[in-house]
C-alpha cells in the first residue's frame, strides 16, 4: 500500500502541523477500508493501477486537506460589504491627497508638463493604493481570523427611522462624482493660492500672473470653493440628494456659473510679467483658452442648476 502512504503524506503536507498525524491516521483508515471493500467485491488483490484510480477519485491532496481544514478567507463574508466600502473610501481619500500633492508639486516646479503631471498623479495613486489595499486587507484579516467583536463594524446598532428617505434612483450620489467634485475644488483652491505654495525662485521666474482686477475675485471664489469642499465632505458621509443638499448645490452652482461667466466676459484675465513668454505664445492666446474653459465650466454649472431645480420640483410633489 505504498501508494496510499504516498497519498496520505501528500495530504498531510497541506495540513497544519498539529492536525497532520490525527487526520493522516483517520484518512488512512478510511482509505484502507474502501480498498478492502473493493478487494472483497473483486475477490482478488487490487493492482497498483486500481489503487491509483481509487485515490485519484478522492481528489488532489490539497483539495482533500482543504475539506478537513478549510482555508480561512482573508476577509469573512460577513465583513465583505464593510471591507469593500472601506476600500472605496480609502482609495477616494488617497486619490484626493494625491491630487493635492501633485498640484502642490506642480506649482513648486518652474516648468509644467501635462503628461508628467498626469503620470505622477497616476503612479503616485497606484503606489499608495497598493499599500493601502494591503494594510486594509491585513486589518480585516486580523479581525476575521481573530474572532474579535465586530458588531460596531457591522452597524448592528441602527434604526429604520434614521435611514434616509430616498424614493428616486438619482437620489443616491455617485462616489465618483463626489470625489471628482472634491478633487476639482481642492485643486482650484491650490491654484488660486499659488503664492503660498510656490518657491521664491519659481515665483520670480513666473511668466504670467492674474490681472489685478481678477485678483480681487480670489477671496470670493475661494469662499465658494471652501464651501464646496466642506459640502462634498459632508456628502461623502451622507451621499443622498435631499431638498437640503439639492438647495445647497443650486446655490453653489449659481455662484460658480456667475463667477465663470463673468470671468469669460472679462477683457483680460492674465497679464505678463518681466519674464518673456515662449515664442508663438501670447497673453491673448492664453486668455482666449482660459475664457473658453470658463465659458464651458459656466454652462455646465448652469446645466447643473437646471437639473437640480427640476429634481427639487420632483421631490416637492
Amino acid at each position: 500500500m505504498e501508494l496510499v502512504d504516498r497519498y496520505i503524506n501528500a495530504v498531510q503536507r497541506y495540513l497544519p502541523e498539529d492536525k497532520r498525524t490525527d487526520i493522516g491516521r483517520e484518512l488512512s483508515s478510511h482509505l484502507l477500508d474502501q480498498l478492502e471493500s473493493q478487494q472483497d467485491e473483486l475477490g482478488r488483490k487490487l493492482t497498483d493501477d486500481e489503487v491509483a484510480a481509487t485515490l485519484q477519485l478522492w481528489g488532489h491532496p490539497r483539495q482533500v486537506a482543504a475539506t478537513y481544514v478549510p482555508p480561512t478567507p482573508l476577509v469573512s463574508s460577513e465583513l465583505m460589504p464593510v471591507y469593500k466600502q472601506t476600500l472605496i473610501y480609502v482609495f477616494g481619500l488617497i486619490f484626493l491627497l494625491q491630487c493635492l500633492g501633485s498640484s502642490i508639486h506642480f506649482l513648486q516646479t518652474d516648468y509644467f508638463k501635462t503628461l508628467q503631471f498626469l503620470m505622477q498623479l497616476l503612479f503616485g495613486f497606484f503606489d499608495s493604493a497598493a499599500t493601502a489595499f494591503m494594510v486594509v486587507t491585513l486589518l480585516f484579516y486580523a479581525y476575521s481570523a481573530g474572532g474579535a467583536d465586530n458588531s460596531w463594524l457591522l452597524s448592528k446598532q441602527w434604526r429604520v427611522q434614521d435611514l434616509p428617505s430616498v424614493s428616486r434612483p438619482w437620489q443616491q450620489m455617485s462616489a465618483g462624482d463626489l470625489l471628482t467634485d472634491l478633487a476639482t475644488s481642492a485643486f482650484l483652491l491650490i491654484v488660486l493660492w499659488y503664492p503660498l505654495w510656490m518657491s521664491a525662485e519659481t515665483l520670480a521666474s513666473i511668466r504670467v500672473a492674474l490681472n489685478p482686477e481678477i485678483q480681487q475675485w480670489v477671496p470670493w471664489l475661494s469662499a465658494l470653493l471652501v464651501v464646496s469642499v466642506l459640502a462634498n465632505l459632508w456628502w461623502v458621509w451622507r451621499p443622498y440628494w435631499t431638498k437640503l443638499t439639492l438647495s445647497i448645490n443650486v446655490v453653489l452652482n449659481l455662484g460658480f456659473s456667475l463667477s465663470f461667466l463673468l470671468l469669460w466676459l472679462s477683457p483680460a484675465l492674465l497679464v505678463g510679467t518681466d519674464n518673456p513668454l515662449p515664442t508663438l505664445l501670447t497673453i491673448a492666446d492664453l486668455d482666449r483658452v482660459l475664457r473658453n474653459i470658463f465659458l464651458l465650466a459656466g454652462l455646465f454649472c448652469i446645466y447643473e442648476v437646471g437639473r437640480d431645480l427640476y429634481r427639487l420640483r420632483q421631490l416637492s410633489r
Binding site: H30, D33, S37
Partner: peptide, 27 residues
C-alpha cells in the same frame, strides 16, 4: 460506526454522500 461503515449505512438508506464531504463533516 467507523467512517466507512457509516458511509455504507447511509448509502443503504438511500443517502449517497461522497467521502470528501462525509469524513470531514464527521470530524
Amino acid at each position: 460506526h467507523y467512517g466507512y461503515s457509516l458511509r455504507k449505512q447511509l448509502q443503504d438508506a438511500g443517502i449517497d454522500i461522497d467521502e470528501g464531504t462525509l469524513y470531514p463533516l464527521v470530524r
